[in-house]
């Protein structure tokens, strides 16, 4: 269901990895995560709510992030997500796996 709304240029499952990575430097609310991904990717990755929030719920359900309500920069109520210890481990594992995969793809593209 949510999958069809995902940007076509993103490999399935990568969004979770990117969100986890975005949270490494500290707690962020949903919009800030989307902004961070957009800015860091130099305007390549646009993540809509329809894929962002299901992904966040999935991470919450698995216990990789936790959410707390707090005040945003301009003092509005917002839900902030933080990495949990399990989330950090997950990030490391996913990242290694992802890099292995990208390496493999690179090699195929260069040599095949």
């Amino acid at each position: 269901m949510g999958l069809s709304n995902q940007p076509p240029d993103l490999l399935p499952g990568t969004l979770d990895l990117l969100i986890l990575r975005a949270l490494v430097s500290g707690a962020l609310h949903g919009y800030a995560i989307a902004e961070r991904l957009k800015v860091v990717s130099q305007d390549v990755l646009h993540v809509g709510e329809s894929s962002l929030y299901p992904a966040l719920q999935r991470l919450l359900l698995n216990g990789w992030v936790k959410a707390e309500w707090g005040a945003s920069e301009n003092n509005r109520r917002a839900r902030f997500y933080t990495l949990t210890a399990a989330g950090r481990r997950r990030l490391a594992a996913e990242r290694a796996e992802f890099e292995r995969l990208v390496d493999a793809i690179q090699r195929v593209l260069h040599l095949a």
Binding site: M1, G2, N5, G48, S50, Y53, P54, L56, Q57, L61
Partner: peptide, 11 residues
């Protein structure tokens, strides 16, 4: 609404 339902469906 769709976004919300999709997010809910995770739970």
């Amino acid at each position: 609404t769709l976004a919300r339902d999709d997010a809910r469906a995770i739970w």
